[in-house]
Design a protein around this nucleic acid. Structure first.
Lengths: 123, 123
DNA sequence: ACGGGTACTTACCAAAAGGTGCATACTTGT
DNA sequence: ACAAGTATGCACCTTTTGGTAAGTACCCGT
């Protein structure tokens, strides 16, 4: 740290910019599920199968810091908080829809492509 | 390794499936640039700024193994190889277009969202 | 009064991801 | 003859990422 590296590195292109927001193992999934409407922390955790508390919270904080989601704390006694997309996040989710559909329409092909590769790896 | 864990874990949803293919720091970018037409290794490396040889090749191999790109080796003397999208890859790239556009249309907002966050982090 | 659910937080650790630098084998340009 | 470019491969090491397990403060149902 001899110098301040505050520069976040310029974007190569639009896609690169988008990736800076959605990169993170579970972020796209979180966004996808929030696209279906506001959700409480627990609901989200059940939806995004396999995510740990640590990751879920960390990603939620980052998405909030980036202005794509909005956190609402009801300050109730058994904690109650929910998360929803901001308009910015909403537009992002819309941009992700084709990728979701691509996955839906090619699930079989993807599954076998991944399986085929494993055989090669499993030397 | 007491048991074969050959099961690649079921997809949570279509998006999850898609992510299994495009996950990797540079993969979306590689695909994006290949969307503009076949490219030689060197060209790609110049396009995808910042990628190391190791990563570029590794990602290219995976994408090829997954059937999204096709490698052509001309067996020429100073090595000449090029990469292009397969029809499968082509459809994937089309599904990514909206995300590219989203990034293009929101570059400013994204840049400031990222910058704003850094200030918070820099405690 | 105890177990379970709520939404987190923190510390510690393992694994994956990625970068650097060197090597290859042959050619073209200077 | 020597440096540079071509498309990789490999060993080594650092960084980043992610998981586990524990704890917190408070409530409700039994």
């Amino acid at each position: 740290m001899t110098e301040e590296t505050s520069e976040p590195a310029p974007f190569i292109c639009g896609l690169d910019a988008t990736l800076r927001i959605v990169s993170g193992k579970w972020k796209p999934l979180i966004l996808f599920f929030l696209g279906k409407g506001p959700k409480r922390y627990g609901e989200l955790k059940r939806d995004v199968r396999g995510v740990s508390d640590k990751m879920l919270i960390q990603h939620l904080k980052e998405l909030e810091a980036h202005g794509v989601i909005v956190r609402t704390d009801y300050h109730e006694i058994p904690p109650r908080v929910d998360y929803m997309l901001s308009p910015f996040g909403q537009s992002l989710v819309e941009a992700m829809v084709p990728m979701c559909r691509w996955g839906e329409n090619n699930t079989e092909a993807i599954a076998s492509a991944l399986k085929a590769q494993m055989k090669g790896d499993a030397r």
